[in-house]
């Protein structure tokens, strides 16, 4: 889990914009991963397994806070607990447009941008690799439109 902290951190930030929520999400994912570890049989890659648990945790945490709109505009204020100056301008712009995507597309494109192959994303999300490719193409096109109006 320690070697995947970078992506987990970015995923948590995409689903839990508020600082205190992010802390809760970290704790919850940590507990869920440790709780589910005894069931890990190695039939999926460790990273695929880890992101399934993490995303399912974030998915069910989001449900708990469903009254709050999950999608925010580009102009949304930076969340407390994160220092925008510590991140590049491009990264901030990308983060803000990613927040405009629906939650499922956010997970998909995050895994793609991290360098996961379509087959690995397919195993994590439970959709076909072809569908992953189609969606990645469509989401990237949408992101480019938002970033280069």
């Amino acid at each position: 889990m320690q070697s995947h902290r970078g992506l987990l951190h970015k995923l948590i930030r995409l689903y839990c914009p508020r600082g205190e929520e992010a802390d809760d999400a970290w704790n919850e994912i940590y507990l869920q991963v440790h709780g589910a570890l005894e069931r890990f049989r190695g039939d999926a890659q460790a990273s695929t397994w880890l992101y399934r648990v993490a995303l399912n945790t974030l998915l069910t945490m989001q449900r708990k806070a469903y009254r709050r709109p999950a999608t925010v505009g580009v102009e949304a204020a930076p969340e407390p607990g994160h220092d925008p100056e510590a991140r590049s301008d491009a990264a901030e712009r990308l983060h803000h447009v990613l927040m405009r995507l629906n939650e499922a597309d956010r997970a998909l494109i995050a895994l793609h941008l991290e360098g996961f192959r379509a087959e690995e994303i397919s195993e994590t999300l439970g959709i076909t690799a072809n569908h992953v490719n189609v969606k990645v193409h469509r989401i990237k096109k949408q992101l480019q439109q938002w970033l280069n109006p």
């Binding site: 970078g6 970015k10 991140r87 990264a91 712009r93 941008l113 992101l143 280069n148």
Partner: peptide, 15 residues
């Protein structure tokens, strides 16, 4: 002029 999505994503690694 396409935005470098992968580059921006990688640069978002927490310090």
């Amino acid at each position: 002029s396409e935005f470098d999505l992968e580059g921006a994503w990688k640069s978002a690694e927490p310090a």
